[in-house]
Design a protein around this nucleic acid. Structure first.
Lengths: 251, 251
DNA sequence: GCGAGATTAAATGTCAGACAATAAAATGTA
DNA sequence: TACATTTTATTGTCTGACATTTAATCTCGC
């Protein structure tokens, strides 16, 4: 592990990269203890604060964890699916909000991925996952539910569907797509009528999953995607109308 | 933005979280300048090194960028798809290698996602993307190619296919799945015979994409997935055999 | 010999203050 | 005005210190 002190790049960034590369290459294995901060400082010929900045960078990516006290130090962290989920969701959310990704593009991606899981889910879903889907459908039918709670339930429903595929890698990938959509979905105000429609579509999906009928499940997802986009478009349209009215009044 | 000095959690982690939350909530917008390190130190009642550690954490996630000099400082970074790709690939790669994800599970996830892109790609692929696919197929047919170069070309081929869907969100999601598989694929030694077979399957895929024939494309991908798994299984088997032989010799 | 409590040591977490390096802005000059 | 110079604000880095945490070790009574 070496760095170039003459580079214009931050020393802490270089050190972080060196250690990260060593982890990726397998030179540092899971739960292995890194040298202490002082030792690393000596090794790289930098001060301790600089080493610390590098370690914090790695900690931010969940690549290491630190422990205080004697026999403490920085350890190579086993990257868990749960940690990766969280990062993925944050990144995806910001990506969508900062790059003005249109509802249509995000929606298309999300349902394309979800439909990729569907055949596997129809085949493998556990009774437990099916029960979760049914429970969420029931919740979505409750009257006094806020829009936010409705969206949250929607996410839980779809995650159960995705998890039904019984493939952790798929679940991880989908976590980003499904949860990152939530802020966009939250823009939609669900009328009683549209909720009713969505609950019906969700019921179709759950029925198809229960019957392990992949083609029927695919068809139901296509219908749900179409309806979701329809709702979003009407929101956009009504906003434009309101903006136009305002414009008219001012003029 | 506030922190709890009595919490057992690192101050730098708390500060990073506070700023991150502000960014996610939209309180800090893209390209907005954060207060200087000294000002942040005053605001949070901590020292400058502590603030710096927090900022490095955010920099590691590409949430901010820093600039030296007068009028410099930390700025909220527009998270670009390219930055997100890189992070996603690193995370996915480590996730697979550290959690002993089996080849079958990773392969299933990858092809499920890829098949999700396929219909869109068949519909929208540009001549450019098609040309890339053809070029990579040609390269894969060259004799003296190393296994690594063959795998790299394979990745480029599949990325062109995925990008053909013309949906940046999909491309981003798939980047992780396709590239993270590479280390696993690198375990396979490709014989001349198997390369020939893969080139033939890739040609089927390119043909289907050119003809914009989605069902044919899907069928070709299914065949490629089956063949890839077959190859991987034979590798695993031959390894087991070798291990068993060794065991036998020792005994 | 052994267990409980006190001590020690090693490590990270935090702080204060300083200087170096950088780059934009302000200033001076032809 | 155009260009060179100086100033200034800011990050990057260093030194040295102290606080806090925690495991290991030691001590002592039984």
């Amino acid at each position: 592990m070496r760095i170039d002190p003459d580079s214009t790049v931050d020393l802490s960034a270089q050190i972080a990269k060196a250690i990260r590369d060593a982890i990726i290459a397998g030179d540092l294995i899971v739960d292995q203890r890194l040298p202490s901060e002082s030792e690393l400082a000596d090794h790289f010929h930098v001060s301790r604060p600089t080493v610390r900045e590098a370690l914090k960078r790695l900690a931010a990516q969940s690549l290491i964890r630190t422990q205080r006290g004697a026999a403490g130090g920085a350890f190579v962290n086993r990257l868990r699916f749960e940690d990766a989920y969280a990062q993925q969701v944050t990144t995806s959310t910001l990506l969508l909000s900062m790059n003005a990704v249109s509802f249509d593009v995000a929606c298309e991606a999300r349902y394309a991925l979800e439909r990729a899981c569907a055949p596997l889910s129809a085949q493998r879903r556990t009774p437990d996952q099916l029960a979760t889907m049914r429970a969420e459908i029931h919740r979505q039918g409750q009257p006094g539910l806020t829009d936010e709670a409705f969206c949250a339930s929607d996410v839980t429903f779809h995650r159960a569907l995705v998890d039904g595929a019984g493939n952790k890698v798929l679940s991880y990938q989908l976590a980003g797509a499904v949860e990152a959509m939530q802020p966009l979905m939250n823009m939609i105000t669900f009328t009683a009528r549209s909720r009713e429609e969505i609950v019906a579509l969700h019921t179709d999906i759950a029925d198809a999953v229960e019957a392990q009928d992949a083609p029927k499940l695919d068809a139901a997802l296509i219908k749900l995607e179409a309806y979701t986009r329809l709702l979003a478009h009407s929101v956009v349209k009504s906003r434009e109308n309101r903006a136009a009215e305002k414009e008219h009044k001012t003029a």
